[in-house]
Design a protein around this nucleic acid. Sequence first.
DNA 1: AAACAGCTACTTGTCAGGCAACTTGGTTAT
DNA 2: ATAACCAAGTTGCCTGACAAGTAGCTGTTT
Lengths: 245, 245
Amino acid sequence: MVADKRRSEPSPNVIGRAPSLADTLALRLRDEISSGRFKAGERLPTEQQLAQTYGVSRPIVREAVGRLKHDGLVSSRQGAGAFVAEPGASTVFRLDIANFSDKEELRHIVELLMAVEASATERTAARRSEADLATIRTRLDAMQAAIHRGEPGVDEDVAFHRAIIDATGNPFFRDLSDFLDRRVRNFIRTARANSARLTGMAQTVQGEHEAIFEAIAARDPQAARMAAETHLKNAAKRLAIYLES
Amino acid sequence: MVADKRRSEPSPNVIGRAPSLADTLALRLRDEISSGRFKAGERLPTEQQLAQTYGVSRPIVREAVGRLKHDGLVSSRQGAGAFVAEPGASTVFRLDIANFSDKEELRHIVELLMAVEASATERTAARRSEADLATIRTRLDAMQAAIHRGEPGVDEDVAFHRAIIDATGNPFFRDLSDFLDRRVRNFIRTARANSARLTGMAQTVQGEHEAIFEAIAARDPQAARMAAETHLKNAAKRLAIYLES
DNA sequence: AAACAGCTACTTGTCAGGCAACTTGGTTAT
DNA sequence: ATAACCAAGTTGCCTGACAAGTAGCTGTTT
């Protein structure tokens, strides 16, 4: 009930931000590299040459090349030039899921999310501490309380899974599943805003959560994995996402 | 003219590239955002203000902010300003493993790699086509041939796993495991260049590969997962990486 | 003839200043 | 009161210039 309507929302940028020159140039250069026209180890044209070739100014070229450097695709040395990096030497992994419109890509994302979450749940079951278990239990109870209040409890749902992932102590698990989960939820929210239908299913979800919790409490990794996988598959089905086992 | 003096290797950049001003500024801004000093949805200072605050020129500020935009942390509108993005709205996931010196981080990476590879192997076993199986078989045979030639067959090893991953048809599995695998191998190569010791173990590795292949051929997902996990755990042990099950 | 030192042209890194496109909020006119 | 208008501010982009560093050429020396 925030009546704060006068604030113009700063971001109507749902989709429509026009790509800057540097954006498009960076894309083109990326293409040139991945297509092999600029081979690994080779020196790429000087900034002035690039500027002339693509009809932009040198600062724009610098910005575009800077992004490639940031992404580990090229590395430059002052006075010498910029060289495209060996693919194996890059230390950065980049994943841009801006354009997932087709269900195919969504399915791939969900697959990866399932792999990460199921593995994390398995690991937590194998190595959890008592403190970890207590935290997870707290989140489980919070979810139950939300249901009793008649709420869908999505935040509590997320928090429960987050607690399990955190218990692995592996930041990569945390960051990746965090990102993927948000992407999937974001997609679902924009695709169909019928979260009301989910409210009735909250207790069903909670039942699956309890199965996961029990497996973790029992230190049974295999059961934990299976419970997590079942939960995720059901979640996918609930959302009418086609996903064949 | 004197015959040219032979190409100086363009990249002695093993470690030592000095960070540019834009690099360091981007890092600082990233900190400001993640630490919450620049809150989500807020407008961050103008480029001129930032330039003055951090003692650099506006182009440098532009370059730094441009990277944040590229990473989905901020979004800007001409005439309005630059706003830090809602964390959930970002469409890009970025992973930079430049500084993994401690074994802790290596273990985390290996854990993630195992999660991805094992899941991919399981999925391939569940859904492979006959063509997929044939390709995998070819790679398996190539590995065997390499062993007979007395070679360690690392390339063939990689190709075998790659074929299994590709059979999932999921590009995220492919890209992620590709990256992680390279990072791990790269680390091992720099840490201890005793690949000679591995040659003798090639046949052992091959035995594990055959187990994986058999499970895929039999369309037995669970067995495939377990075989893959065993293989990866053994690989970790072989390399004397501490990794408790 | 070969090795060394120095020099010059070139390339990236950074800065300064300026104009165009666009947004925003206040002002003026109706 | 409402709508059109305007001006200040901000980002996007450009030109031009200098500093820092590299690589190859040249001439000298051994």
